[in-house]
Write a protein that binds this DNA or RNA. Sequence first.
DNA 1: GTTGGCACTCTATCCGCGGGAGTGCCAAAT
DNA 2: ATTTGGCACTCCCGCGGATAGAGTGCCAAC
Lengths: 333, 333
Amino acid sequence: MLRALIDRYVQDGQPVGSRTLARDAGLTLSPATIRNVLADLEELGFVASPHTSAGRVPTVQGYRFFVDTLLTVQPLNRRAVERMRAELDVDQSPKDLVESASGLLSGITHLAGVVTLPKHEHPLFKRVEFLPLSENRVLAILVTGKDEVQNRVLSTEKVCSAADLQQASNYLNHLFAGKDLAEVRAALLHEMQETQTSMNDMMHTAMQMAEQVLETNRDEDFIMAGQTNLMEFQELCDIERLRKLFDAFNRKRDMLHLLDQCVHGEGIQIFIGQESGYKMLDECSMVTAPYSVDGQILGVLGVIGPTRMAYDRVIPIVDATARLLGAALNTKE
Amino acid sequence: MLRALIDRYVQDGQPVGSRTLARDAGLTLSPATIRNVLADLEELGFVASPHTSAGRVPTVQGYRFFVDTLLTVQPLNRRAVERMRAELDVDQSPKDLVESASGLLSGITHLAGVVTLPKHEHPLFKRVEFLPLSENRVLAILVTGKDEVQNRVLSTEKVCSAADLQQASNYLNHLFAGKDLAEVRAALLHEMQETQTSMNDMMHTAMQMAEQVLETNRDEDFIMAGQTNLMEFQELCDIERLRKLFDAFNRKRDMLHLLDQCVHGEGIQIFIGQESGYKMLDECSMVTAPYSVDGQILGVLGVIGPTRMAYDRVIPIVDATARLLGAALNTKE
DNA sequence: GTTGGCACTCTATCCGCGGGAGTGCCAAAT
DNA sequence: ATTTGGCACTCCCGCGGATAGAGTGCCAAC
């Protein structure tokens, strides 16, 4: 019953009345009976009517109950699977993969897709190289566990020769290769304090440089796609609301914080309405899944759409995308 | 007269009639006189009335004439200048600078800001380094003229030792250091064809790798900010239009093509309405300026807003931002 | 438990009607 | 010749009232 109502409401966003429900649902019951049931559902808080003579609309609690207890996910659309394979399987950089995934999510669900960039929780230090650029500018290149590369231009206090730099990188590589990056960082900090003056200047500079590189390792980000899909839903057609929503999308910090909440819960997470605690997502829901490689969670992906979304269709899509993205990233290792 | 009408219309977006114009403008003329003038302006095609008893609204031709012949730019708001200095002056990476500039443009004008990433037309090859990662994976690092760094992981056909790679990079660096990157590319291609088999395998691989790196040097991009500002304008409150606009923003290729047109014209460029030839920018205008370092144009920046924008206020802001961005990038050289 | 009937409520929509704003034109004034 | 006031005209916008439609709740009957 609740299921039928939600199905219907998801279809066209209009409050649904007993009459349509009687016709629509497979059940052969008269509108009167349905009305009785609906009255019960209303008492339970699962549905509500916007005004006396409109149909019923599922409430947040209604969706929650629906999702928690009587949801049966639909099998994946074959075409969609093909498409996902094709887009995520090829050899792309992690960033491109994330963008593809985001595009896929929004394209297939017709909602907004969001994917965080993969972030290793315990990245391994692999090696570091220093290249002299000019007098006191040095290019530092840091390679971490999965052949991910970061580079940065450093300013050194004193002029370093190529040989100096070579020596410095050799030293660091010998000492730290394969270690956890956080450990390396800690060790460096420690050493810098301890032997502040005693060690030779070159090493000191090397330490400083390495520390600088490590510092910048904290960048996080996410990729969104298909925000404009959300404009199609008339419940969001209010410009005010729309603007708040889009502004929220641009507030990276908030979004990341929100997405972070999802990474901790295990498996598919569903935030309905303001369950997330974010007012801007009023009237919106979010379905997310973490993606991982070798059991290590690298990030989260999901979709954002109006509360009225086809959860049964969206959930398997999010799930599959997370799996495929994990798999695609795995080939990079 | 036209100026007064445009001023007024820009203020509140309502068709403006003879009465208000008489009161508002410094001119001491009766509404009747104004009506005569307005009738003339209408015949010239500079204004139009949406319907019989509404005021007049400037047409695209009206704006064009206004902008071309009787526009006097306003001096820059002092606070804005301070803010721009503060945001663009500090030591940031080019990408951060571009993001700041984009944010500034949108923040100060309350429109959408857009800035292309800087792109050297004739980048110089400075040096290349190859680091072995695993069996047949090599990290290539290309440093171009302004200490800009790109890196990429390459797959080689055969296993290369560190020494091999060192030799290869030495060879390339000796041969090409300081040359124009396009030349280097051409030379490499040529050489690869000529001596296809005669040169030793290592060099051949090196060539291939260098070529691969060069190939990927064609990435362009732009940064946008403040799109949501556009939602404030009631002439864009139509969801349909809004969606088209935002979709257009996401079509990077089209946007880049559009922005490319602006880089060729010299100085400030103003597209009013669909003058750009892009239907999606209907009802919108774009004010752009190229930014450059040492006389070399690196990119374009500008704002996008409704046709009804305060051109006299926006133009100096765009101009100043372009200058400041150029200056900020200059310190990187 | 289910059903049909009926009165009731509330909304959305259409219609008609001024009020208001603005125009165009003309004749008078400067 | 330009400017001005006056006047009739047109058109939009907002208002109230009437109406149709959808849906409910309740009750009595099956």
